[in-house]
């Protein structure tokens, strides 16, 4: 306290909300937005694509191959190549993260729905469900655990990957890392890693909770 370098807690208190750009609170909300968009957009794109891959079987192999390749590409060069199109904006970081998310979620959607037992599907048909109603009320709920397992991977890795964007000045909490490196100082790194891991754990926990709520029959089955 007092003289000397500030302790971790002092540093947090002093930088939490400075009123200027780049306070921890600002970076945290940037980070939330930049990781949430890829998760949601990834799912929104992977669902129809996955369904198309089930409907037209030949489509799955090439789609999976393309996204497999995209998934293998490091994020930093992708950000750099995108800069010429989207400039130095959060979008430049968000777009590659959407591709990574789709690479995980498309197989999850396809596997999840293909795993719906044939007799269940036929029962729905026999009960007069239209294809859309069958999808929404029977197939998607049964596929939910597999899709959510994919979403958990996507959520956690998106939250941590956003920080690489700091290397082009768009990294949410990752900005704490570049700041700490340019002006050698430990607290920002520790706070950055801590908050990112915490965000990831919270996101993971929320998805586990969502799965419980979306698949009540799993619990009922376990109880009996």
């Amino acid at each position: 306290m007092g003289d000397g370098p500030p302790s971790l807690w002092e540093w947090i208190a002093r930088n939490w909300d400075t009123g200027r750009a780049g306070s921890i609170r600002d970076l945290l909300s940037d980070h939330l937005l930049m990781s949430l968009v890829p998760i949601v957009a990834g799912l929104a794109l992977a669902l129809p694509l996955g369904l198309a891959c089930i409907r037209w079987r030949w489509l799955y192999q090439p789609t999976a191959a393309v996204f497999n390749v995209l998934y293998a590409l490091p994020s930093l060069p992708l950000f750099m190549l995108l800069i010429s199109v989207t400039g130095l904006s959060p979008v430049t970081v968000i777009i590659p993260l959407i591709f990574y998310a789709m690479a995980v979620l498309i197989p999850a959607v396809v596997d999840g729905i293909r795993a719906v037992p044939e007799h269940v599907r036929q029962s729905a048909v026999a009960m007069g469900f239209t294809p859309l109603r069958r999808l929404v009320q029977v197939e998607l709920p049964i596929a939910a655990p597999v899709v959510i397992a994919g979403l958990r991977v996507v959520a956690v890795s998106s939250i941590s990957l956003v920080s690489v964007g700091a290397l082009i000045g768009q990294g949410g909490l990752g900005m704490l890392f570049t700041r700490a490196y340019q002006n050698p100082f430990l607290p920002p790194v520790v706070v950055g890693i801590g908050l990112i891991v915490l965000l990831a754990l919270v996101a993971d926990g929320l998805l586990v909770l969502a799965q419980r709520l979306l698949t009540p029959w799993e619990r009922a089955r376990r109880a009996t």
């Binding site: 920080s163 990752g174 490196y181 790194v189 990112i196």
Partner: peptide, 19 residues
Amino acid sequence: ANLARAIPTLGVLVLFVLL
């Protein structure tokens, strides 16, 4: 496995270099 996915690589690199 879960922790490794959550840990930001850039942060860990900077942490090790600073230490």
